[in-house]
C-alpha cells in the first residue's frame, strides 16, 4: 500500500514538474480537448477506480478476519475490561481474578475482550496485537485479539479522556498454553500493576 502510494506520488510530482517546464508549442482547442480526455479519463477516473478496487480486494477480507465471529471450534476466551479515569480494570468472568492495568492471555488463541467504561469514552489499544476499539458508556464492545507469540505487549488508551490520558498504559502478557493454565490456577499477579491517577 505504501509502496504503491509512493510510486503514484512520485509519478505525479514528476509529470507536474515536466508539465510546468515543457513548451507545448501551438496547441489548437481540439488538441487541448484530446489532452483533456486522455488525462482526465486515465488519471482522474481509471487510476483512482483501479486503486480502490485493489484496496478493497485486500481490505474487506482483512477486516472480516478481525471480526469477533464464533470461531470454527470451541469458544473464544472472554476477558472483561472496564476503563476508568485513568486505569484499566480487568476481570476474568469464569475465574475470580481481577487485575489492574494488566492482562494475561494464552498465545495463539483467539481472545474476546469485552470493553465497557465506568465514566467517559476511552479506547483500548495494543498496537502490536491489532486495532483499537472504544469503550462507550452504556454499551459493551467486543474486540478480537490473538497473540502469535509469547511475551509482553505494550498497550494504552487511544481516545482522549481527560487530564490523565497520557498516563493510562497497560501490559498484555501472552503466555504459552501450559504457562497460562498454571497462571490461572495460581494467579500470583492478582495485584499486578497499580492505579495511576
Amino acid at each position: 500500500m505504501f509502496g504503491f502510494s509512493v510510486v503514484v506520488m512520485a509519478a505525479l510530482y514528476g509529470l507536474w514538474w515536466y508539465a510546468m517546464r515543457r513548451d507545448p508549442g501551438e496547441i489548437s482547442d481540439q488538441q487541448a480537448q484530446r489532452h483533456q480526455n486522455r488525462w482526465v479519463i486515465w488519471g482522474g477516473l481509471a487510476l483512482p477506480i483501479g486503486s480502490i478496487t485493489l484496496l478493497l480486494a485486500f481490505g474487506i477480507p482483512a477486516g472480516h478476519r478481525m471480526l469477533p465471529l464464533p470461531p470454527a471450534e470451541g469458544e473464544a476466551l472472554v476477558i472483561e475490561v472496564k476503563a476508568h479515569q485513568w486505569f484499566w480494570q480487568v476481570r476474568y468472568p469464569e475465574r475470580d481474578i481481577e487485575l489492574i492495568n494488566a492482562l494475561v492471555i494464552p498465545a495463539n488463541t483467539p481472545v474476546d475482550i469485552h470493553l465497557t467504561t465506568a465514566d467517559v469514552i476511552h479506547s483500548f489499544w495494543v498496537p502490536r496485537l491489532g486495532g483499537k476499539l472504544d469503550t462507550i458508556p452504556g454499551r459493551t464492545n467486543v474486540l478480537r485479539l490473538e497473540a502469535d507469540r509469547t511475551g509482553d505487549f505494550h498497550g494504552q488508551c487511544a481516545e482522549f479522556c481527560g487530564a490523565g490520558h497520557a498516563h493510562m498504559p497497560f501490559v498484555v502478557t501472552a503466555k504459552s498454553a501450559e504457562d497460562y493454565q498454571q497462571w490461572l490456577n495460581n494467579p500470583d499477579a492478582r495485584t499486578q500493576g497499580d492505579r495511576d491517577d
Partner: peptide, 18 residues
C-alpha cells in the same frame, strides 16, 4: 451509478450486524 454499485457491493459479502 458507479458509487451506488461500489457502496452496494459489500452487501454481497459481509454479515449485516456484526
Amino acid at each position: 451509478a458507479l458509487a451506488t454499485l461500489w457502496i452496494g457491493l459489500p452487501v454481497v459479502v459481509l454479515p449485516p450486524c456484526v
